[in-house]
Design a protein around this nucleic acid. Structure first.
Lengths: 216, 216
DNA sequence: CGCCGAAGTGAGACTGAGTCTCAAGTAGGA
DNA sequence: TCCTACTTGAGACTCAGTCTCACTTCGGCG
C-alpha cells in the first residue's frame, strides 16, 4: 500500500500520467486531503465528519474511505517521508551520523515543492493545535524507531540488530519528541532548526546525564 | 479529567476505605480491568467489544464507559505511574540523573505488590502482542516528554523551561522506545534490565553519534 | 468503431465506540 | 427512619469503519 509518486529524474513510470484513470485518482485524493485539512482547521478534527469531507470534495463517503482508511490518515498519509529518506541516503559518506540526520531533515524539507511544503505546514499546525492529531502524528508519522534503526544501520554499515543502532534510533526519535515540545512552547522557533539544535546538543553527549539530583 | 487517587503520605483520604460506596467502585473497576485484559488476551483487542467486557464483569455497558472513557483506557490507566514517580523522588540526592532514572524504575517495579505486578506484566504482554495496544501505550503510557521534563527539572533543580532539561527528557523517552524495541526482539530480556542497560550506554554519550556514514 | 472486462463509484445496510438523558436503586448522614 | 446525593441500567443517538451490490466509466482489442 505504498501510494508513492517517486519523482525520480527521467522517464519515471510512476510519474508518467498512466492514463485518465490515474490522473483522476490523484486529483480526487488531493481534493479530499485539501478539503479535509481546511475543514479540520476551521471546525476542528472531531467536529468534522467523514461525510463533511466527502461532501466538500463532491464524492461519496464510501469513496472517502476508499482513499483514506481512517479519518486520521488524511492528516498522516504524506508523500513527504520518502523525501526525507532519500535526502538521508544522499548525504555524502563520511558525515558523522547525527549530523547526517540533521542535514537530511533540512535537505528534505528544502527539496519540497511549494504545494507540498504548504501542506506540510498545515499538518504541523494541526499537530500543534489539535492534541489528538499531534498524538497520532508522533506515533505513526515520519518514522518509528524500528524504521529509523533500519536506516541508521544501513548508514553506518552495521547489522540491523545491533543494540547500539537501536539505542541511537531511540535517541533520534526522542530528539524529535523534544523538538516538538520545544516548538510547542515557542512556536516562533522552526521545527527543523530546533531539531537540528537538539541533535547538536546530543552529539556532545546527553546533557545533565551526570548532573547530581538535588533534594526535593 | 484526572481520575487519579493522589496517594499523599499520611491519612490519605483516597486510600482510606471511605465507606462501602468507594470500596464497591474500586472493586468494579478492578473487575472490569481484570476481565478486559483476559478477554483481550484470549480473543484479541478488536474482537472484544465493550459489551463483552461489561457482561463479563456483570455491569452495564454504560457503567463500563463510566469507569473507562475508552476501551483503550482499560489497558492504559494504571496505578503504576505514581509509584514510579514516588520511587524517583525517593532516590537519594546526589545520584547522577540517568542513574536515578534507572534506579527508580527498578525500585518502583520492585515495590509493586504481586497483583499489580501481574497486571503490569499482562499489559506489557499485550503491548508486545497487539500492535494496536503497543502503539497507544507508547504514546500515552507512563509519561509524556513534558511530564518527564517536569520531574527532571525538579530533580536537578533547574527551571522547567530549561532546554537541556527537555532534551534529556526526550532522550529518556527515546530510551524507553529503544528498550521496547529491544525487548520486542528478544522477549527473554526483562524490560527493566533492558531499559537500565540503554540508560547506562547513554550516560557515556550517544553511541555512534560521530560514526561516519558509509556509502549506501 | 464497438464490445468486453476491469476498475472506480455510490447507495445503503450493519457493527461497534462513545455520548447523553432519564428513571430507578442505594448508600449514608441527619 | 427519611432525605439527599451518588451510582447504575436502559436505551436512543451520532459517527467511524466495513462490506456488499449494482451501476458507470475507462481502456484495450478485435
Amino acid at each position: 500500500m505504498k501510494r508513492r509518486a517517486t519523482m525520480s529524474p527521467v522517464t519515471d513510470p510512476g510519474t508518467r500520467d498512466a492514463g485518465l484513470r490515474e490522473r483522476k485518482k490523484a486529483r480526487t485524493r488531493a481534493e479530499l486531503q485539501r478539503h479535509a485539512l481546511r475543514l479540520f482547521r476551521d471546525r476542528g478534527f472531531a467536529a468534522t465528519t467523514a461525510d463533511d469531507i466527502a461532501a466538500a470534495a463532491e464524492v461519496s463517503r464510501s469513496t472517502f474511505f476508499r482513499y483514506f482508511p481512517t479519518k486520521e490518515d488524511v492528516v498522516l498519509l504524506d508523500d513527504v517521508d520518502p523525501v526525507f529518506e532519500e535526502a538521508f541516503r544522499a548525504i555524502p559518506a563520511g558525515t558523522p551520523l547525527l549530523e547526517a540526520v540533521s542535514r537530511s531533515m533540512r535537505a528534505g524539507f528544502a527539496s519540497l515543492d511549494d504545494e507540498k511544503r504548504a501542506l506540510e505546514e498545515v499538518r504541523m499546525d494541526l499537530a500543534r493545535t489539535i492534541p489528538e492529531i499531534g498524538a497520532v502524528l508522533r506515533e505513526r508519522n515520519t518514522f518509528g524507531v524500528e524504521h529509523v534503526a533500519a536506516m541508521i544501520a544501513q548508514a553506518v554499515g552495521r547489522p540491523a540488530d545491533d543494540e547500539e543502532v537501536v539505542v541511537v534510533a531511540g535517541v533520534v526519535s526522542g530528539a524529535r519528541l523534544a523538538a516538538q515540545v520545544l516548538v510547542h512552547r515557542d512556536p516562533a522557533r522552526g521545527y527543523i532548526d530546533t531539531f537540528a539544535s537538539v541533535l547538536e546538543t546530543l552529539s556532545a553527549g546527553v546533557p545533565l546525564a551526570d548532573a547530581p539530583t538535588v533534594p526535593m
